[in-house]
């Protein structure tokens, strides 16, 4: 059976894509993870993970126009698929189920 749940990094990437919206390419995705997620990230790691997510059908990508500020190179924009959105929700449900009922995490002790 295909793996449905996401790793923490995959989850952060998918959430970052959702937060950034239509302009989601490598730089803003990495920046969102760094600034909001509080995790330093290498751009290559983002693209490697995005490649795996695309292979699993959780994201799709489109190529933009080449621009001068990128040395004449194009951007690759990413978007979640329906399957990707379901995977995010399923992972959230699993994490919340694990989270709930842990005494050490109640009342702000964590």
């Amino acid at each position: 059976m295909e793996r449905q749940l996401l790793t923490d990094f995959e989850l952060m990437i998918l959430l970052a894509i959702l937060r950034v919206g239509d302009a989601a390419y490598g730089v803003p995705i990495a920046r969102e993870i760094e600034e909001t997620g509080g995790r330093p990230v290498a751009l290559a790691s983002v693209y490697t993970a995005l490649g795996r997510l695309q292979h699993r059908g959780l994201v799709t990508s489109t190529t933009g126009e080449p621009t001068a500020e990128r040395g004449g190179r194009s951007k690759r924009f990413f978007k979640l698929t329906g399957k990707g959105l379901r995977a995010v929700k399923a992972t959230r449900r699993s994490l919340m189920a694990l989270w709930d009922g842990v005494p050490a995490l109640k009342g702000g002790l964590a």
Partner: peptide, 19 residues
């Protein structure tokens, strides 16, 4: 030395951030 289909896109991102 880098491999994969995204090397040129990645290089574009790095140049954009550097500039």
């Amino acid at each position: 030395l880098g491999s994969g289909n995204e090397i040129e896109v990645l290089l574009g991102d790095l140049i954009e951030e550097y500039l």
